[in-house]
Design a protein around this nucleic acid. Sequence first.
RNA 1: GCCCCCGUAGCUCAAGUGGAUAGAGCAUCGGAUUUCUAAUCCGAGGGUUGCAGGUUCGAGUCCUGCCGGGGGCGCCA
Length: 555
Amino acid sequence: MSPTIRRTLEDRLKQVVQETFGVPLEVALEVPPNPDLGDFAAPIGFKLARPLKRPPQEILQELAPRVREALAPWVESVEIQRGYLNLRLSDQALQDQLTQLLADFEAWLPRVAEGRRMLIEFVSANPTGPLNVANARAASVGDTLVRVGRSLGAPVEAEYYVNDGGGQIRALEESIAWHLGERETPPQDGYLGAYLKHYAEKVRDLPYGQRARWVAEAILRDQMAELQAFGVTFDHIVYETEFHDPAEEPRDLNPHIGRRFAYTQQVLEAFRRLKVLREMEGALYLDTTVRGDDKPRVLVRSDGRPTYFLYDLAYHLYKFDRGYELLVDLWGPDHLGHVKRMKIALDLLGEGLGRPEVSGENFLVLIVQQVTLLRGGKRVRMSKRKGEYYTLHDLVQEVGVDAARFFFLLRSISTPLDFDLDLARKLSSENPVYYVQYVHARIHSLMAYAAEKGVQGSAQPSDLALLTTPEERHLLRLLSGFGDLLLDVHERHEPHRLPYALMQLAEGFHAFYQKHRIVGEDLARTRARLALARAVQRVIRHGLDLMGVRAPEKM
RNA sequence: GCCCCCGUAGCUCAAGUGGAUAGAGCAUCGGAUUUCUAAUCCGAGGGUUGCAGGUUCGAGUCCUGCCGGGGGCGCCA
């Protein structure tokens, strides 16, 4: 429940500025480029200069003594440097963090204050073939966001949407017939990959028209198994056909069909009420241009079949209806053009329904950029329909779950990722993931050694006061900031910060270990250093777990 | 043609909501271990942040234009 030191300091600083100058100021603490400058830097001199019409230096000189007093329990020095107020944490505060971390790790982690119920939808691959590496990247990112959120006590759930309707299912049906030799020419837009033959053989005895549904279910099961092996699970699975008209298909063939058709009708009614529906050439359009879109978007085709867009709106209304307050969707770059119209449509939907919570504001799309596979320095072209594949399964076989997940998380979401397969295979012994895992294993072995030497008893506060070398202080500082890091990952939806932070912590520990003897003559110092090592191990283990990466005890 | 993403060290990428001397890994070169895991550590070289302007105390970050790469622009999903 403890707020982090950084948040505490920011709140206090804000308060002091308000009391001293009577102006509000959002204070965002930064970390100075050089540790000699302190642990935190508040760039408030520049920011106050304008509203107060006074030079930064003068402002800070007036502020510094008050800050020093207000932050006394946590901060041992406050210095003015250029336009910054540089803060140095007290040894006591850092040692207290260590004590609390070890006493009750879960309680030491910060909690997300306003618990908006969040639903993250990701992967949501078509049930027409195996998962590819783009799905793998989305799975890594989405799952880690879910885990981080939960670790901070935020109500976050994971959902998978199955596009089990529309043209691709018809194409699947045709493709199955082709694989069974019932038609000579391969269907246009068909799925010609060898994998499908295996599924097709199992439905040979089913009549044409009923096979695709069975195969889609089987593929979905296999996808889920593959994801589970990748460490990724979902709380909910929702099918597109739930939003279809139940008259479309007999329910004994499709148990999902039409269960939530009411949502589809509700969407159309809301738009009708709002008078934003347009009929042109026999098709029904949503006039998104009233909110700045380029052109109206088709909801119902001229032959009466609804589009994916309409079903997607019904689906997202269903999400809001279940009480989620923030909807996060992870989409591929090919869906980029849909973001704007979707937000507009949700705004209109909320207005039409008179429900302000249904709105584009509460709908966040994260575009997870594409993955390009390289082999021998050349692009590996992939096409589901042509049957050219490199699957999630292949990836796990080749580089393993740990390396794959770590590697995917190492890039920010918005960066296209070149995945060099030759390099990835080579990386198996050079990948940074092993650098981090090694710290965990090393500390495990260290603990065993200490036990063997008969070192007993946990560190007392007086022991921890001995942690004063630069390497020890650096580690204490990194540990104390771990909660802030998780908050950043959660609030900004930037999971790539996590592996970087763990690499930094690992680097700090390796350097510390190299330079200082941990189990030694001085028992008090030994206890203190073991406590520090145990805390590092705990944080590393937690961080790796959030990434779905194992924390081995031996390497 | 319009919209979006990207352009940072030889390579792959970071850079905490506009902050101090732009940082890591890999690669290259040079060192370190009789004692707790060398899958480690220490050090060196390597940069006009694609180009040109602008905004301001301050720009890799924001704005405009251009160049290059990728993606999208369907009564497909």
